[in-house]
């Protein structure tokens, strides 16, 4: 952990418990996940119990306590995507990457997550890789999209859970 980096993030906010969520968001933006030692350090700096910091980090879905892959693949399972075949997109992505939802490939290239609604329901089913949206996606095109991000059959296989 780079204490200076965390200090800089905390200084951009007030050293106040109410800023805990924005601080964790910025730390996660820096590391792509929330390493445990950063949580301990933030708890100490803000003088809040570590349980509160863990409470926040585990309650909200956007935080991850495990390292995530280079590319974050999210498949929307909102209602509109559900009725238009979102679950099949997710199954296809699971099969191609060889991991379950919430897991990361062994080479840390891809993390696969589901999301409850991305708000582009008119384009369902939708898959998002990093911040690129792929709408009206048939299951047969999932592999092609993943190839764009450097998927090869070597990427598949289980790594850590997020």
């Amino acid at each position: 952990m780079d204490e200076d980096k965390i200090d800089k993030i905390i200084e951009e906010h007030r050293t106040d418990k109410s800023e805990l969520i924005p601080i964790l968001q910025d730390v996660q933006a820096e590391y792509n996940w929330l390493p445990q030692d950063t949580l301990r350090y933030i708890a100490k700096r803000l003088q809040v119990p570590l349980t509160d910091v863990f409470g926040i980090a585990t309650f909200y879905k956007s935080f991850s306590l495990k390292p995530r892959g280079k590319h974050l693949v999210r498949v929307c399972l909102g209602t509109a995507c559900h009725v238009r075949g979102g679950p099949r997109i997710l199954e296809t992505a699971e099969r191609i990457l060889g991991i379950k939802t919430g897991e990361t490939t062994e080479d840390y290239k891809f993390t696969l997550e589901s999301v409850n609604c991305l708000g582009c329901c008119a384009l369902g089913p939708v898959m998002v890789v990093d911040n690129e949206y792929y709408g009206k996606l048939p299951p047969t095109k999932v592999e092609k999209v993943l190839h764009k991000y450097g998927y090869t059959s070597l990427s598949s296989g289980k790594g850590g859970e997020t």
Partner: peptide
């Protein structure tokens, strides 16, 4: 402006206010 952190229940008024206070949004 306050950015949520991904919790459906935080859209409920009292939960949203807890979230604004930097707490678990329940």
């Amino acid at each position: 402006i306050f950015r949520g952190a991904g919790a459906f229940i935080s859209g409920e008024s009292s939960a949203l206010m807890s979230s604004l206070e930097g707490k678990v949004g329940a």
